[in-house]
Design a protein around this nucleic acid. Structure first.
Length: 360
DNA sequence: GCGATTTGACCATT
DNA sequence: AATGGTCAAATCGC
């Protein structure tokens, strides 16, 4: 890597610049016609802002060298500052603090985490937990204190080739040996899911389970259902951050409608998040989840807010690199899987969300 | 030979 | 210091 840039990064930058230029041209076109609407204009502003920020992030990360760049260990796809929402602020502050000295842990990243319990019946002949559709590679096993059975550690086979940082832990239940408790961490960005069997249940799928609603054949439907269903009763296993609180956070959505998400195409419109008042009204846990499966939620506004709303002096270049690299690594996805939590304490109260400049 | 698994060691966290 | 999570060398299996 020369000057901290890989070939892929250069290409990515080139693509981003190209996209931004096209958006600018589109803006000129819109401005020259009477058909220009406020919404279109706003969307354009958002597109441009996204490009600019992506470029900024890239440049930042590139300048930090390999260990902090997109492909580095810090670049954990799907890694939120806190997906769990319980201690987003503390986690984030801590992360920032950690980065202020250079002896930063590269090992334990805060990843979205949820559990699934898989019952294995003798009739099925299955010896272990069912194949969840992804390709896993075992990398460790550990006896756990107080547990009768060892815990196995798996990571995505394509961690290296596709920078897919999903992992799972499998532990046989003490109470019922036929039950395997599988804890998934991180989200797959690899494209090797077999789809022969249901993919590992993300929290939203767990929700779907709760609703006995597995029959969504279209991704859009899933996406819509995600937002409509999730509001009701979803809880996410958040032990990582709940160990000290002993509680789970149900999703709670404001009544502000997810109708906004009924975009006309298959992907969700960012417009639902364009509304910064809406952003502000989301409860913290809402931002704690995003889903690669449904591709339905972009934390764009969240990202932007966090990016621009950092309090002065609390971030360093490496901080931002790590924060954003988590998602830029999955650049093919429309999702910025930056689902770290928003916490009121993280916002600069004076940050001009209402300002048009925010989106420019 | 290559990829997957095993397993002891190492490291971070608490 | 105890524990959990990950690494990496050794081993296994195809």
């Amino acid at each position: 890597m020369e000057n901290g840039w890989s070939c892929e990064q250069k290409t990515l930058i080139s693509e981003l610049i190209q996209g931004m230029e096209m958006a600018k041209q589109l803006r000129v076109q819109l401005n020259s016609t009477s058909s220009s609407t406020e919404i279109a204009d706003m969307l354009l502003q958002r597109i441009l802002a996204s490009y600019e920020k992506a470029l900024l992030i890239l440049r930042w990360s590139g300048s930090m060298g390999q260990h902090q760049t997109l492909a580095g260990t810090a670049a954990v796809p799907g890694s939120p500052i806190s997906v769990n929402g319980s201690h987003g602020s503390e986690e984030f502050e801590k992360g920032l603090k950690d980065h202020q000295d250079f002896n930063v842990s590269k090992k334990r990243k805060i990843l979205p985490r949820w559990t699934d319990q898989v019952r294995v019946s003798s009739e099925t002949g299955l010896e272990g937990p069912h194949d969840d559709g992804y390709s896993w590679r075992k990398y460790g096993q550990k006896d756990i204190l107080g547990a009768k059975h060892p815990r196995s550690y798996y990571r995505c086979t394509f961690r290296m080739s596709q920078n897919c940082w999903a992992t799972k832990q499998v532990q046989r239940s003490d109470e019922d040996p036929n039950v395997f408790e599988i804890t998934y961490r991180g989200k797959h960005i690899c494209s090797h899911a077999t789809n022969l069997v249901p993919a590992p249940p993300s929290p939203e799928k767990q929700e779907q389970k709760h609703n006995n609603d597995y029959n969504h054949h279209h991704q859009q439907e899933q996406s819509l259902d995600f937002f409509s269903n999730i509001r009701s009763s979803m809880t996410i296993d958040t032990h990582e951050h709940l160990d000290d609180k002993e509680m789970t956070y149900p999703f709670s959505f404001p009544s502000t409608s997810f109708g906004c998400f009924k975009s006309e195409n298959s992907s969700f419109s960012l417009s639902a998040l364009d509304n910064n008042t809406l952003l502000g009204s989301f409860s913290q846990p809402f931002f704690s989840r995003a889903t690669p499966e449904s591709n339905c939620f972009s934390a764009d506004a969240c990202q932007t807010s966090n990016f621009r709303g950092f309090r002065n002096g609390h971030h360093s270049e490496s901080d931002l690199t790590e924060i954003f690299s988590a998602n830029t690594s999955a650049s093919s996805s429309p999702i910025l899987d930056l689902d770290f939590s928003l916490h009121p304490a993280e916002f600069d109260p004076n940050f001009p969300f209402d300002s048009p400049a925010f989106f420019s």
